[in-house]
Simulated assay, not measured.
Amino acid sequence: MSDDKKNSGSPDRDRINVNEDYELQYWTKALGVSGDELRAAVKAVGPTAAAVREHLGK
């Protein structure tokens, strides 16, 4: 599924796409982690923001 920038509703906001620079920058700042840490978390638990937060203890 591609990242449709015109569709920014809840399903899109609840997922982290580490392949988009602007999302990587947003989420690393929001969670206080490095890009590598964020990529590892997404790889470990999937792209949902809630799962990544839980995995990182945020």
Score class of each variant (00 low, 15 high):
1 M>V: 12
4 D>A: 11
4 D>I: 15
4 D>R: 13
5 K>E: 08
5 K>T: 07
5 K>Y: 11
5 K>S: 04
6 K>S: 15
6 K>G: 13
6 K>P: 09
7 N>T: 00
8 S>H: 07
8 S>A: 12
10 S>H: 13
10 S>Y: 09
10 S>V: 11
10 S>A: 11
10 S>R: 03
11 P>C: 03
11 P>S: 08
11 P>T: 02
12 D>C: 05
12 D>V: 02
12 D>E: 06
14 D>E: 04
14 D>R: 00
14 D>W: 00
15 R>C: 10
15 R>W: 04
15 R>Q: 10
15 R>P: 01
16 I>C: 00
16 I>D: 01
16 I>K: 00
16 I>T: 03
16 I>A: 00
17 N>M: 06
17 N>D: 14
18 V>N: 08
18 V>Y: 03
18 V>W: 03
18 V>A: 06
19 N>K: 09
19 N>G: 11
19 N>L: 06
20 E>M: 07
20 E>H: 13
21 D>G: 04
21 D>W: 11
21 D>L: 08
22 Y>P: 02
23 E>V: 06
23 E>W: 13
24 L>I: 13
25 Q>G: 09
25 Q>D: 10
25 Q>L: 15
25 Q>C: 12
25 Q>K: 13
25 Q>P: 14
25 Q>A: 13
26 Y>W: 09
26 Y>K: 02
27 W>Q: 01
28 T>V: 03
28 T>W: 05
28 T>S: 01
29 K>H: 11
29 K>N: 15
29 K>E: 10
29 K>V: 06
30 A>K: 14
30 A>D: 12
30 A>W: 08
31 L>K: 02
31 L>T: 01
31 L>Q: 05
32 G>L: 04
32 G>N: 05
33 V>E: 08
33 V>L: 05
34 S>I: 02
34 S>V: 01
34 S>W: 14
35 G>Y: 13
35 G>K: 15
35 G>W: 13
35 G>M: 14
35 G>A: 15
35 G>D: 15
36 D>I: 06
36 D>G: 12
36 D>S: 15
37 E>I: 11
37 E>Y: 06
38 L>N: 07
38 L>K: 10
40 A>F: 02
40 A>M: 09
40 A>V: 00
41 A>L: 06
42 V>K: 13
42 V>D: 14
42 V>R: 09
42 V>Y: 14
42 V>L: 08
42 V>G: 12
42 V>H: 15
43 K>Q: 13
43 K>A: 07
43 K>G: 02
44 A>L: 01
44 A>D: 00
45 V>R: 00
45 V>M: 06
46 G>E: 06
46 G>N: 09
46 G>A: 11
46 G>T: 10
47 P>C: 12
47 P>W: 10
47 P>Y: 04
47 P>T: 12
48 T>R: 09
48 T>Q: 04
48 T>G: 07
48 T>L: 03
48 T>V: 12
49 A>G: 07
49 A>H: 09
49 A>P: 05
50 A>Q: 13
50 A>W: 06
50 A>I: 12
50 A>R: 13
51 A>N: 02
51 A>C: 07
51 A>I: 04
52 V>W: 00
52 V>T: 03
52 V>P: 00
52 V>M: 00
53 R>D: 01
54 E>V: 03
54 E>F: 03
55 H>E: 05
56 L>E: 10
56 L>A: 11
56 L>K: 11
57 G>Y: 14
57 G>L: 09
57 G>T: 08
57 G>S: 04
57 G>V: 08
58 K>C: 14
58 K>A: 12
58 K>H: 06
